[in-house]
Design a binder for these strands. Structure first.
Lengths: 134, 134
DNA sequence: TTAAATTCCTACTAATTTACTAGGATTAGT
DNA sequence: ACTAATCCTAGTAAATTAGTAGGAATTTAA
């Protein structure tokens, strides 16, 4: 039940971008890679997932980079983690069409746990994290 | 962030044992292996973890088997999962002595998420699961 | 218009973890 | 003594995660 490195790095990057949002600045992958200590190539892939989920937007070409699409107050940690962590789902059977054919007693438990986790993660905004205000 | 098969099988076994608790019956590994569809050898290892955590007790020799050490009302899903899932921790840095030297902004988040998950899991007893009463 | 800086795309490999197999020792009942 | 069971531990296979790599496309600036 570990968070992947994508989740850790991705959230870190999101918080970095949150801190730049007010100034309207963009951050390049190479700058972000330096501050996280991850290679550019790996970070690229992680940020791509956030872009796909409409959390960040990219400006290509020279002087380009990434920035948040919306205000950090309006972006939740849950959104970010669901975007970068392929498997935020606790078990497979819930979101992959098992539909409780198995009648497994634990299925409801996993579903509720998943709900619980996401509900919690969605109460926290990137702004809060950036302000270290939990 | 997947639950391991140990977590799934372990919880299933615990619920099976919960159903037998009232009658004071024991269940053998081979019987449990049949009902879960897992090999005996693998299940042995999982049950051993529950034994180590004082959730089940073993009776060795002929007519032996396993049973819950306490009433299913007094055993929580959280206890079972923490026993069998080696890595219920969300990230390493929390329980392995990082002690926030890294000053990473996300650390508090992970700690609270972990707390949140466990608090939830500890509100549910094996009895509830056995009764499908969530 | 060319060079530089940047994102974008995708295939591959290495490392780690998880899941499972296997063999036999130990214990207890009949 | 024999049988049915747990116990112990080492090894292997499968899957996932983490990271590497190369180069195409796009935009800006000189």
């Amino acid at each position: 039940m570990k968070m992947s490195s994508k989740a850790r790095y991705g959230l870190y990057v999101a918080v970095e971008l949150a801190k730049k949002y007010a100034q309207g600045e963009v951050a390049t992958v190479s700058a972000l890679a330096q501050s996280t200590g991850v290679t550019e190539k790996y970070l690229e892939q992680i940020i791509a997932l956030m872009k796909k989920a409409n959390i960040v937007v990219a400006l290509r070409g020279a002087n380009g980079g990434y920035k948040l699409l919306d205000s950090p107050q309006n972006i939740t940690v849950g959104q970010v983690l669901r975007a970068v962590e392929d498997n935020l789902e606790i078990v497979d059977c819930i979101h992959n069409g098992c539909d409780n054919k198995c009648h497994c007693v634990s299925r409801n438990l996993w579903a509720k746990l998943y709900e619980n986790i996401n509900t919690y993660l969605d109460t926290i905004s990137l702004q809060q994290l950036a302000d270290d205000d939990l």
